[in-house]
Design a protein around this nucleic acid. Structure first.
Length: 498
RNA sequence: GGCCCCAUCGUCUAGCGGUCUAGGACGUCACCCUUUCAAGGUGAAGACACGAGUUCGAGUCUCGUUGGGGUCACCA
């Protein structure tokens, strides 16, 4: 394998359109993309829609949308075409049938006439007898006449691969090394289904061959069927690609791999998104998600974990991929997302904050948003958190906090009211409503009233923002302006019992 | 259960026979800064699953045990 002439690098991501993109799928796509970019190769998007039962028409669009959002542009694919198309398997069925027949003609495969029900029955009996379930190869040696008899019954055959019955299948995996399978334990897998469409096994080998895919990077769950695929390459007599089986992402709380079926929860019991679209909606940045995904099962080197994906291209190699599965490190995603938010230029962050604010029903003025953005930049970990922290800036009507929220620690209503009144007097006299000037004007009042900064600034904060956790007080006053600030203090005063 | 893969701090990881009294990051805790919340700074606790080998020497190689994961479809 290693001494074959290197081929141009062509990798592919081949999802089946059974729903929108899974986060684990995005990582597989990312690694394939990274490898292609690293080696100046091509990254191909292929749709594996040979299972009509599970096909969801919406998902092709969603899949592509998620990939584009993440910045993983493909060089060939169903929407943009390419020299190796079509890129949707259901449009390639003649190819699969042609080569399935070739296998038949060359004694590498055979027709089997059992119905799904009969196979199911066989499995049940095997299980009942505590035998390993599997096809018993009954039809592997059928005569012409026997086949004709089944056909006469109206049975439609599937085509199964004639696996070697003894010996080993030995394969070199690019990240796991030598993997050995005993042929006697392997199955004669179905290659072409009764509906004339291929199974994954046949389809991917044929497509990867004709699309000249050089490296197949896929999740480890494919490893058990690798020997079948390998025997197919051997049967065809074609040069196999280099296989690399990636570790999977495990559920952080319970056991098993991350799955949308069993929604995972973090240690606080909050649900963790699994689908890429959920991450989009939750306010994660694509650059943060890619950065995060690249850190699972691979590492940048230099002890660096924060990076932009373009920086990873130069360093991405298969031998740096960790073969162990890993659980989904939620807190790290939060941290990385916060990091990427903080690194964004203010204008860029403001632009991204618009969507979640508008989704919350707020009217977003661009100038105002630009002023508010720096105040939230170090305080949010996801874009959607802007709504809770600074949504009040964009509400048409100000909603004051409760009296008890305004009253600070070790203070009562009277003292609070007094502080508000005195503050109002001072603020009314300030012409330059800037953060610094406001701070300087109010500061002396703390000692006059025998309060500390926390108390005085705190009650002003709650009066002016309506929240106990908010953007900084004086910065907020500067943005909303003098009239509004005084108005809100009046509202607070009205709330306090006399 | 058969087969296959995997195994370093709670988590993500570095480590590719000696430089490991095991490094980094997230998280946690403490302190500093501080008008809330963050951010930032400083510091602390915290791991080579176990047992045999190989070797002058093992986190690093081999085998076994244990544990975890995956897979056993006319789904991918």
């Amino acid at each position: 394998m290693t001494d074959t002439t290197p081929r141009p690098v062509r990798t592919r991501f081949a999802p089946s359109p059974t729903g929108s993109l899974h986060i684990g799928g995005l990582r597989t796509a990312l690694f394939n993309w990274l490898y292609a970019r690293r080696h100046g190769g091509k990254f191909v998007l292929r749709i594996e829609d040979t299972d009509q039962k599970r096909y969801e028409p919406q998902s092709l669009e969603e899949l592509m949308e998620a990939l584009r959002w993440a910045g993983l542009q493909w060089d060939e694919g169903p929407d943009i075409g390419g020299d190796y198309g079509p890129y949707i398997q259901s449009e390639r069925r003649e190819l699969y049938q042609k080569w399935a027949n070739w296998l038949l003609d060359n004694d590498k495969a055979y027709r089997a006439y059992e119905t799904p029900e009969e196979l199911e029955q066989m499995r049940k009996e095997q299980l009942a007898r505590k035998q390993p379930p599997g096809y018993n190869r009954q039809h592997r040696t059928l005569s012409e006449a026997e086949c004709a008899a089944f056909e006469a019954e109206g049975r439609i055959p599937v085509i199964r691969l004639k696996m070697p019955l003894e010996g080993n299948t030995v394969i070199e995996d690019a990240i796991r090394g030598r993997v050995v399978f005993e042929n006697a334990t392997l199955q004669d897998m179905v290659l072409l289904k009764a509906d004339g469409l291929p199974t994954y096994h046949l389809a991917h080998v044929l497509d990867d061959h004709f699309m000249e895919i050089s490296h197949v990077m896929r999740a480890v769950e494919w490893l058990p069927s690798l020997p079948v695929h390998w025997q197919l390459w051997l049967a065809f007599g074609w040069e196999p690609p280099i296989y690399a089986h990636l570790p999977v992402i495990l559920n952080p709380d319970g056991k098993g791999k991350l799955s949308k079926r069993k929604p995972p929860k973090d240690k606080h019991g909050n649900p963790i998104p699994v689908m890429v679209h959920d991450f989009m909606k939750a306010g994660y940045l694509p650059e943060a998600l890619c950065n995060f995904l690249a850190n699972i099962g691979w590492n940048f080197g230099d002890d660096r974990e924060f990076f932009y994906i373009n920086e990873a291209i130069d360093r991405f190699e298969l031998d740096r991929i960790n073969e162990a599965n890993s659980t989904f490190p939620t807190e790290k995603l939060e941290w990385l997302n916060g990091m990427h938010i903080r690194e964004l230029p203010v204008e860029a962050l403001a632009a991204r904050l618009r969507a979640p604010l508008e989704a919350a029903g707020l009217i977003v003025d661009s100038d105002l948003l630009l002023k508010v953005t720096p105040l939230v930049q170090t305080r949010i970990k996801t874009l959607s958190e802007v709504v809770g922290l600074a949504g009040f800036f964009f509400k048409p009507e100000f909603t004051p906090a409760s009296a008890e929220a305004i009253i600070q620690k070790k203070m009562d209503a009277a003292a609070t009211a007094q502080a508000l009144v005195r503050s109002r007097e001072i603020l009314a006299g300030v012409d330059d409503f800037s953060t610094q000037a406001l701070h300087d004007a109010i500061q002396p009042l703390t000692s006059d009233l025998g309060l500390n900064n926390s108390q005085l600034f705190g009650l002003l904060r709650v009066a002016v923002t309506g929240q106990t956790i908010s953007t900084p007080t004086f910065e907020t006053m500067e943005i909303i302006g003098k009239a509004e600030t005084l108005h809100r203090i009046d509202m607070a005063l009205a709330l306090l019992p006399a």
